[in-house]
Simulated scan of single mutants.
Amino acid sequence: MKLIKRGNVISLGTPLEVREQRYLKHLASALGHYLENPQGSELVLRLGSGYEKDNQQALETWVSYHRDEIFAKRLEGQNPLDYLINKIEQLVQS
């Protein structure tokens, strides 16, 4: 019986930069689920650099842009996803 998928396990030998990039990608995915997986590319101009192909890539770019804030929130013991949700709601409403 398998409890954990092998692809979800990161070995201790994995460089920190790779682990951080995976974490940011997971946060962008969770944010996409929160936004009910918006299809299309309307978020590219709002969140991305303008070169992304779709909303998910725009979310990944936006989350990467807030990398320092995300890791600061983690160090403070706060949930970075809650922080990003608040930030994106403010951005979309303005």
Results as ranks from 00 to 15, higher is better:
residue 48 G to M: 03
residue 69 E to H: 07
residue 62 W to E: 00
residue 31 L to P: 04
residue 24 L to S: 05
residue 39 Q to I: 14
residue 73 K to A: 11
residue 68 D to E: 13
residue 39 Q to H: 11
residue 54 D to I: 09
residue 32 G to Q: 02
residue 42 E to Q: 09
residue 43 L to N: 01
residue 66 H to L: 05
residue 74 R to C: 10
residue 55 N to S: 04
residue 52 E to W: 03
residue 71 F to D: 00
residue 29 S to H: 08
residue 29 S to A: 10
residue 51 Y to T: 13
residue 60 E to W: 04
residue 73 K to N: 08
residue 70 I to V: 02
residue 41 S to N: 14
residue 64 S to I: 08
residue 36 E to C: 08
residue 58 A to S: 04
residue 45 L to H: 09
residue 35 L to I: 06
residue 71 F to C: 06
residue 65 Y to W: 12
residue 46 R to Y: 10
residue 73 K to G: 01
residue 43 L to A: 03
residue 39 Q to C: 07
residue 24 L to Y: 05
residue 24 L to K: 05
residue 33 H to S: 08
residue 71 F to K: 02
residue 26 H to Q: 13
residue 63 V to M: 04
residue 74 R to A: 06
residue 60 E to G: 02
residue 49 S to P: 09
residue 72 A to K: 09
residue 39 Q to E: 14
residue 73 K to C: 07
residue 48 G to I: 08
residue 56 Q to R: 10
residue 52 E to A: 05
residue 60 E to S: 06
residue 50 G to S: 01
residue 58 A to V: 14
residue 30 A to R: 14
residue 54 D to E: 02
residue 55 N to R: 09
residue 68 D to N: 11
residue 30 A to G: 06
residue 44 V to H: 02
residue 70 I to M: 03
residue 71 F to R: 02
residue 68 D to F: 11
residue 34 Y to R: 10
residue 53 K to N: 11
residue 45 L to V: 14
residue 28 A to H: 02
residue 47 L to Q: 00
residue 67 R to K: 15
residue 29 S to L: 15
residue 64 S to D: 07
residue 42 E to N: 09
residue 42 E to M: 09
residue 47 L to S: 00
residue 74 R to E: 15
residue 48 G to V: 04
residue 70 I to R: 00
residue 52 E to D: 05
residue 33 H to V: 13
residue 41 S to G: 12
residue 66 H to Q: 13
residue 42 E to L: 08
residue 32 G to M: 04
residue 52 E to Q: 07
residue 40 G to T: 13
residue 66 H to I: 06
residue 42 E to T: 11
residue 53 K to F: 09
residue 29 S to F: 08
residue 35 L to G: 03
residue 60 E to N: 04
residue 44 V to E: 00
residue 43 L to I: 08
residue 25 K to P: 08
residue 62 W to L: 01
residue 39 Q to V: 15
residue 54 D to P: 04
residue 28 A to G: 05
residue 36 E to T: 12
residue 33 H to L: 12
residue 67 R to L: 03
residue 75 L to E: 15
residue 33 H to N: 09
residue 36 E to L: 14
residue 57 Q to C: 07
residue 45 L to S: 11
residue 48 G to K: 06
residue 40 G to K: 02
residue 41 S to V: 13
residue 51 Y to S: 04
residue 30 A to C: 12
residue 61 T to N: 10
residue 33 H to G: 06
residue 68 D to G: 07
residue 66 H to V: 13
residue 64 S to Y: 05
residue 32 G to H: 10
residue 57 Q to K: 11
residue 26 H to D: 13
residue 46 R to M: 14
residue 26 H to N: 12
residue 59 L to I: 05
residue 74 R to G: 07
residue 29 S to D: 08
residue 48 G to W: 01
residue 71 F to G: 01
residue 50 G to P: 07
residue 29 S to V: 15
residue 57 Q to Y: 02
residue 30 A to M: 15
residue 29 S to K: 12
residue 52 E to N: 05
residue 55 N to T: 01
residue 66 H to M: 06
residue 39 Q to D: 10
residue 75 L to A: 09
residue 31 L to Q: 01
residue 55 N to L: 06
residue 32 G to V: 01
residue 35 L to E: 02
residue 31 L to M: 02
residue 27 L to P: 05
residue 29 S to W: 08
residue 44 V to L: 02
residue 64 S to A: 13
residue 28 A to I: 01
residue 34 Y to F: 15
residue 35 L to P: 11
residue 75 L to Y: 10
residue 60 E to I: 11
